[in-house]
C-alpha cells in the first residue's frame, strides 16, 4: 500500500526537480554568462512561441545553435570550465533547479495515489443511468468500480457506445468532466483510489492547496 504521508515528506524534503541541460550533440560550447543563482524561464507566450532564457551556444560545423532553458527555475551550476571547448553529445552543461508548483505537487501525489481512467477518444461522456443515479443521490464517493464494469456511454457524432472500466478496483475519487463537455482524447475522466485511502488523499490535497508556497 502506498504511504501518502511519506510521499509528501519526500516532496517537502526536496521541493524542486533538478534539470540537467546536456549538449544535444557534439560541438563547441560558449556559455551565455549565467551564474549559479540566476533566475531563468522556459518557453513563454500564449502559443509558447518565445524561447526560454539563453543558456549557451553550441557550434557544430559552423552552425551556431542556441540552447535555452526548458523550464522556469534557478541556475544551480554551470560548467564554465567547458567554455570554448569541444564537447560530446550528452555532456551536462548546466543544472537548473526547478521549484515545483502547487499544481505539479498535487499532480504528482495524485498520480501516485490515484488511478486515472482516461478518455479513449474525443467525445462526450456520460455515466450509465444506474451509476449516474447513484452519483447524484449519494455522492461520487459511493460508487465502486471494478474491471470490466460498464461505466460510461460515449456519445459522438450521433452515435452512442458503452464504455467499460478497466483498471484497478476502487471507488471514484474525482470526476474530471462535466455533463455535456467534450473531452479530448487522453484526458482523464475519473480518478479511482483504493477505498481505505480516500480520506488521506483528500486531506493531503487540501493541505497542499492551502500551504504550498510557490517559488
Amino acid at each position: 500500500m502506498l504511504n501518502i504521508k511519506e510521499l509528501l515528506d519526500e516532496v517537502k524534503a526536496s521541493p524542486y526537480r533538478e534539470i540537467v541541460v546536456a549538449a544535444p550533440h557534439t560541438g563547441v560550447v560558449e556559455f551565455a554568462g549565467l551564474k549559479p543563482g540566476d533566475q531563468v524561464h522556459g518557453r513563454r507566450g500564449e502559443f509558447k512561441e518565445k524561447p526560454g532564457t539563453l543558456l549557451a551556444h553550441l557550434t557544430r560545423e559552423r552552425n551556431r545553435k542556441p540552447i535555452t532553458a526548458p523550464e522556469k527555475g534557478e541556475v544551480e551550476s554551470v560548467r564554465t570550465e567547458l567554455e570554448g571547448q569541444f564537447v560530446e553529445a550528452g555532456e551536462p552543461l548546466a543544472t537548473i533547479r526547478h521549484f515545483l508548483t502547487r499544481k505539479e505537487v498535487i499532480e504528482r501525489i495524485l498520480q501516485e495515489a490515484l488511478f486515472l481512467f482516461r478518455a479513449p477518444e474525443r467525445a462526450k461522456y456520460y455515466f450509465v443511468p444506474e451509476v449516474d443515479q447513484k452519483l447524484k443521490v449519494s455522492g461520487k464517493r459511493s460508487v465502486k468500480v471494478s474491471e470490466g464494469m460498464e461505466l460510461m456511454i460515449v456519445s459522438r457524432m450521433k452515435r452512442e457506445t458503452p464504455l467499460a472500466y478497466s483498471g484497478p478496483e476502487g471507488i471514484i475519487h474525482s470526476v474530471y468532466f462535466g455533463r455535456g463537455d467534450n473531452v479530448d482524447e487522453g484526458a482523464p475522466l475519473i480518478g479511482v483510489c483504493p477505498e481505505d485511502q480516500l480520506t488521506v488523499i483528500q486531506d493531503v490535497v487540501a493541505r497542499i492547496q492551502s500551504e504550498w508556497e510557490e517559488a
Binding site: 550533440h25 557544430r60 560545423e61 559552423r62 552552425n63 545553435k65
Partner: peptide
C-alpha cells in the same frame, strides 16, 4: 559554403542538421 544549418522544425520533427 561548407557548414550545416538546422531545420526550423527541429523541435517538433527532430530533423538532423543539414549540410
Amino acid at each position: 559554403e561548407d557548414r550545416t544549418v538546422s531545420c526550423p522544425n527541429v523541435r517538433t520533427h527532430h530533423c538532423p542538421d543539414l549540410w
